[in-house]
Nucleic acid binder design. Structure first.
Length: 265
DNA sequence: AGGGTCAAGAGGAATA
DNA sequence: TATTCCTCTTGACCCT
């Protein structure tokens, strides 16, 4: 960010002239949000397993698998956390994940209760390797199809539901971050426009003062009336000589020197 | 103790 | 109707 070119394809409607993005997925995100969004969230491309980066992912997955200690620990933790407060809906979700083995589900339910019999929800913390692989996957695609979810869950020793939740939260964090950036940008826009408004008001006041001081024939629209800085004659732009009460000799020549004084005459 | 972070729950909307 | 996603919220954990 930093220049208008950087945000030229935004959904901002503030009279700034930015165009609306047409990407269906992104539009959905923008409409769903309550706060302002410029719509230039990071673009994330979908890619399949054949991507060049896929091998890197697989190697990272192997690293995660080798991390037996943490993986097993997290499996226990996650099992406890996911099913401790299971609702009907979550039961349905768990049932829909065909690759989740019955053994796994049973073990999850067994670990549902702590040793002391309480039903407290345990906090799962992903290992660095797990987070790294998830981040790597997120860079490639911010959403997962069922197969990608299953593969990733298998590689990470997590349940598909946990992978799904991680991606949901990751998308939410991305959007929140982008919203904060958008907010800062809009503040700067607001400051700039306020300053511009102040300047134009001042200029208007000056023009009104000049208009009062000028003779009647000179009181033409300000945009077409000014004095040539080189010959000091007052002139106009684009008027038809045949319809104008002045002849070219007697009439001032007009131009607009406010924007380009050097182009006069 | 209190605030920040993050996994997970809950519920509604969209979609195939 | 099942599934997925989004949004808001909750609760555990960590840090100061």
């Amino acid at each position: 960010m930093g220049s208008f070119d950087d945000i030229s394809n935004t959904g901002l409607v503030l009279g700034l002239g930015f165009s609306t993005r047409v990407d269906q997925k992104s539009t959905k995100i923008l409409l769903a949000g309550k706060g302002p969004s410029l719509g230039f969230e990071p673009s994330l491309t979908l890619s399949l397993s054949g991507d060049p980066t896929y091998n890197e992912q697989q190697q990272a997955a192997k690293k995660v698998k080798n991390d037996h200690q943490s993986a097993d620990l997290y499996r226990q933790d996650s099992a406890a956390s996911s099913y401790s407060n299971a609702s009907v809906k979550r039961e349905r979700d768990a049932g829909s994940e065909e690759t989740t083995t019955e053994v796994e589900r049973l073990s999850s339910r067994v670990s549902d209760e702590d040793d002391d019999g309480s039903n407290a929800r345990k906090k799962l913390r992903l290992s660095k390797a797990q987070s790294a692989l998830l981040e790597e996957s997120f860079k490639q695609h911010s959403t997962l199809n069922p197969k990608q979810k299953q593969d990733l869950a298998r590689d990470l020793n997590l349940r598909p539901r946990q992978v799904e939740v991680w991606f949901q939260n990751r998308r939410a964090r991305t959007k929140l971050k982008q919203t904060e950036v958008d907010c800062e940008f809009l503040k700067k826009c607001c400051e700039t426009l306020t300053e511009e408004n102040r300047r134009l008001h001042k200029e208007l006041q000056e023009l009104k003062a000049v208009k009062i001081a000028q003779p009647l024939y000179m009181q033409l629209p300000a945009a077409t009336l000014t004095m040539c800085p080189s010959c000091e004659r007052i002139g106009g732009v684009g008027e038809n000589p045949s319809k104008n009460p002045f002849t070219l000799a007697q009439k001032p020549h007009f131009y607009n020197s406010f924007t380009n004084p050097s182009a006069a005459c």
